[in-house]
Nucleic acid binder design. Structure first.
Lengths: 187, 187
DNA sequence: CGTCGACATGTCGAAGTTGGAATATCGCTG
DNA sequence: CAGCGATATTCCAACTTCGACATGTCGACG
């Protein structure tokens, strides 16, 4: 649903071809919203149909350069200010966490360790982007806000995974895994 | 794709009907992976077809109770230990952040303020769940791990939104918004 | 006995997503 | 000029997702 607006947003910055947009998705926007070739080209065609973008130039190899129209800009503004962001939860990792009780403690622990490592790696990747994504233009400025989000959340995620791993170890140590066994009262 | 495994995971805990599962999605699992009626019933039918669940009882009003089979358990285990979680980034809020430069500073700021409020509200909601989701069974234990993730991430998100709001105010104050205007050298 | 609300499942179409294949041009290099 | 790699677009089949609608049962209440 939002792909339409991602494309509009990129074209609001400057005219581009489908191929150009795909490159932008690959290096920056894709960290936030990924898109495939077929999606981008199809969306450009739809947007052109509905008059929110127009072809401003045709180049070599059938290249078509698209620019946003006033109508497109209006739609983009409406989307930014009036449409509530979609917050449908869909987290593949957390879904697995819910079912970690089905695994042996050491398997569950390995899962959390891998998650901690993944989060750390992702954090490093984003750190490396910080240098690249510097620039005074509006796009870089706001891209950096998104980047900061990534840095903070990946850090939190790593801490959480380490904490969760410890929880699992502790439970395993105290002889749980057999829910029917009453926990001996402390003291 | 993961809906299949969400259903299998719930049935691994205990047999249930589609209607039962829907209720579980509504109160707990849905915070992590949401599903609609049509999806759940269709998935149960598919799983029954492929022999990963079976109908163990038929009750009033056409109620069918499903239980997981050995084959289903094996698939669930494989998914938990061997399948890399899907991490396709798709964040509607961050996508908008990328394009915040197209708004007036006060509009952009209002956007971030709303985000901070939403994150805080969501955090409170999860806090309230903490009391409800207490229990010694494996499901509650691991549900709490997921809950803790939510608490940490919503907290980080709120902090980030407040920080970002300040960034935008600062930029607006220093006369940016017209990228062609050279910034006056300090001193 | 009627009917209302909760229970319970199922079908449908529109829209969105994915990955892959097909097609073709341009510019460089040997 | 033949061949290659980067550029560039288009089409397609399969699948998922969503919301709406259709269908029907059961128990309780008056």
């Amino acid at each position: 649903m939002s792909l339409r607006h991602a494309v509009l947003g990129l074209l609001a910055d400057c005219p581009a071809s489908g191929y150009d947009l795909l490159k932008t998705f690959a290096i920056s926007l894709g960290n936030v919203w990924s898109a495939t070739q077929s999606q981008v080209y199809a969306e450009l065609a739809r947007l052109a149909d509905s008059g929110q973008v127009t072809v401003t130039a045709e180049g070599a190899r059938g290249r078509k350069e698209y620019a946003i129209t006033e109508s497109g800009r209006a739609e983009l503004h409406r989307w930014l200010t009036e449409v509530e962001p979609n917050r449908t939860p869909r987290n593949d990792t957390l879904l697995r966490v819910f079912f970690l009780g089905l695994l042996e403690p050491d398997e569950a622990q390995a899962f959390m360790r891998r998650e901690a490592e993944t989060a750390a790696a992702h954090h490093e990747e984003l750190s490396a982007l910080t240098a690249v994504a510097s620039g005074p233009d509006s796009f870089s400025v706001h891209g950096r806000l998104a980047l900061e989000w990534g840095l903070r959340v990946t850090a939190a995620q790593r801490e959480w995974a380490l904490w969760a791993q410890k929880q699992i170890i502790d439970r395993a140590a105290s002889g749980v895994g057999d829910p029917d066994t009453p926990v001996p009262a402390p003291g």
